[in-house]
Design a protein around this nucleic acid. Sequence first.
DNA 1: CTGAAAGCGCTTACAG
DNA 2: CTGAAAGCGCTTACAG
Lengths: 340, 340
Amino acid sequence: MPDGKVATINDIARLAGVSKKTVSRIINHSPLVRPDTRDKVELLMRELGYVPDPMARGLAFRRSFLIGMVYDNPTAQFIVNMQYGALDALRDSGFELVVHPCDSRSPGYIDGVRRFVQQQKLHGVMLVPRVSEDQALADMLQEIGCRYTRIAAVALDEPSRMVITHDRDGAAEAADYLQTLGHRDIALITGPASYRSAIERTGGFIDALSRRGIELPKARIVEAGYTFESGVAAAEKLLGGKRRPSAIFCGNDEMAAGVYRVALRDGISIPRELSVIGYDDSPLASRLWPPLTSVRRDTRDTGRIAAAMLIQSAEGAASRPAASVRPHLVIRDSCQPPAS
Amino acid sequence: MPDGKVATINDIARLAGVSKKTVSRIINHSPLVRPDTRDKVELLMRELGYVPDPMARGLAFRRSFLIGMVYDNPTAQFIVNMQYGALDALRDSGFELVVHPCDSRSPGYIDGVRRFVQQQKLHGVMLVPRVSEDQALADMLQEIGCRYTRIAAVALDEPSRMVITHDRDGAAEAADYLQTLGHRDIALITGPASYRSAIERTGGFIDALSRRGIELPKARIVEAGYTFESGVAAAEKLLGGKRRPSAIFCGNDEMAAGVYRVALRDGISIPRELSVIGYDDSPLASRLWPPLTSVRRDTRDTGRIAAAMLIQSAEGAASRPAASVRPHLVIRDSCQPPAS
DNA sequence: CTGAAAGCGCTTACAG
DNA sequence: CTGAAAGCGCTTACAG
């Protein structure tokens, strides 16, 4: 284009000698265009560096080219990885990622998401734990006709909308590993029972131990808040008694760091006197000493899949099966067989 | 509005008995509206829950209501805090935040940002360290007429575009503190000299010590990469010799965690035998044991200011002085007077 | 397979 | 202080 001006659909149509409707068909990948017409126009678009204006398209479509990511308050690393993953899927798609953190305990938060979605006419939203677990949120989105994907430990919705992280399996792998090492007196620090991830990790861990003949007594299970501080408090409870467990599985790495803190302070050697496993495989896991064995979840991949589902053509999307991301145990140096 | 339909400017104009141009003037806060007309229309807008369509406005304005955040690869917590801050400023403004991580070492990254800005017709972009330090990026934005703000340790651009974090002062405060505690043999682990923040922190630390009569020998200064691993390597160099420094100041917390790792492994007690200070006051600082004394920077506030500058009315904006965010030392338990 | 007309919901430029 | 006309850059609905 001459001077700083950027090409529009009218320029392309005029220079190609076709109507703008034909150019529009090509932009939207309509099959109703003769191949040679398509080639001619596409060549011209490349030459002029033409890219359709998302606002003009959005206005006509009554829907923007924005994907929203809605989340409450997971760890920073989790959010960032999820964002990277979503951006992996959106790259060169013409879609952009708009972030929307919120406080799911505040009463007006669902209305806040509704305004966000409606005012921006979002193309779709990714629901990240734990807002992904809120059925009222999903119902609202359904009601206003906004497409969404939910990332959660189990299927909470139609398969085509789910990315399932199978936390149960990750926790079970941790249980199997501890049992294999020979641990029998094992403890568990769980996340809040209001989190589905906590329920699944807890259930998966307990069931897997049970399958291997180990029953976890109630006293060996402490509910905490997924935070470092709550991990410290839980560890004090578990390690303060006269008979200490030989291993602790924590619902996330933050709480495992709390266990480390107490162990270090009280002179309990990890892993010699106490084995510890976390969940998330966050950067923290390798900053701790000894490096923490932890269940890794591929958050970036999870985000990529959730975003990709949103921008895929709608055809057959409704019947698509749920997507899955599998956790797996990353073994480092925080576990060993119990002292005999 | 009847059924699910949402009100438009035409509905408001018709129901208020004015032209849509008058409604438009009210939306855009034009003073050229009679107060009673304004009141009448604004009441109606509230009643109908009318919000102007950002895509329609954007199309007419030839500029979207999106603010871009461009960053390379700082820590997750830094990115997330910056995002929270930006969203603080954008809340209820009608603007949304679009994130754009990139790799400043890849050759095409400036073109990538250009496409991002031009295709979305961004209203403005926030440049976060270290891409904020790249003059070629800023030049490109200037050339295409995109407004931007740069967050950096020192003024790199016109004041109206700068949020200055004064890293020099934060490092100086760390130096003063160590000197006051009585340390004389002090070491420094710096970030990469290609980062302005590293240069400023290093310079600020050295100069402040010098002002207090302590000269840092070359051997006590080790350049590292702002990463945990590089911090480990630097600490090994500094702590491996036969005369150890009594205190180490690290250019960020990640590297300080590396020092902790080496100290723990080699049986060097912090703070009894070695005092350590970090920079960032990240969550890691309080996860470490003993809790790390660190220079705090209010990243959320920084992000808030940088975003606010972008959406402020353009009037007088060009002559606005640079914004400043001040670091300060947060004292925890990782320092004490040197063993005599 | 292709196109002319109307419209998406706003603003600009002009007139009064 | 207010408004009618034209336009931003696309798509939809209809016609052929």
